[in-house]
């Protein structure tokens, strides 16, 4: 009989250190900027692809942007299911770089009715960052990161 103490073999599982290293980018959009040609980057780069400078300064990007391209995941991966719909988008941040992000709370409104209604996000929709759970890591801890929703803050 199977017992919960009998391990299920799993190959090549990273330790929590791997995801932990990138938490500032996930929580707060910490990117960086080339000191020589001032191009901003997210995620952080180690070498500027434009001028090959290795002098880059960390910078926290503003948590606001606009939708450039949007789609909707109807077959979410395990750990990402549970919502009625899972819209996502490329968002052009106010500070320049673009991010790929899930969109949340897009099917809400003062009198939003049924579930899974059509998403109201289109090209140009203003969005803001919220931190949500991305998934539970293979090694156990929760991995949190940015998602975006229609902008409330002014």
């Amino acid at each position: 009989m199977w017992s919960p103490t009998e391990p299920v073999y799993r190959i090549a599982t990273p330790t929590p250190a791997k995801a932990w290293r990138s938490r500032d980018g996930r929580y707060r959009l910490v990117g960086n900027r080339c000191e020589d040609c001032v191009l901003p980057f997210f995620p952080k780069r180690r070498v500027c692809p434009q001028c090959h400078s290795r002098s880059l300064t960390e910078t926290v990007l503003a948590p606001y942007g606009r939708v450039v391209s949007a789609a909707e995941d109807r077959t979410p991966l395990i750990g990402h299911v549970g919502r009625d719909s899972r819209p996502f988008a490329i968002v052009a941040l106010e500070d320049g770089p673009c991010v790929l992000t899930e969109l949340v709370d897009v099917d809400t409104g003062t009198d939003a009715g049924g579930e899974g209604g059509p998403t109201t996000v289109t090209e140009g929709t203003e969005v803001e960052l919220v931190v949500r759970k991305w998934r539970r890591e293979a090694s156990g801890p929760y991995q949190y990161g940015y998602k975006f929703r229609p902008r409330r803050a002014r």
Binding site: Y27, G82, R83, V131, R132, K133, W134, Y142, Y144
Partner: peptide, 11 residues
Amino acid sequence: DPDADAVTLAA
């Protein structure tokens, strides 16, 4: 929400 908990709401 399935991707929310006490920490994300607090954040």
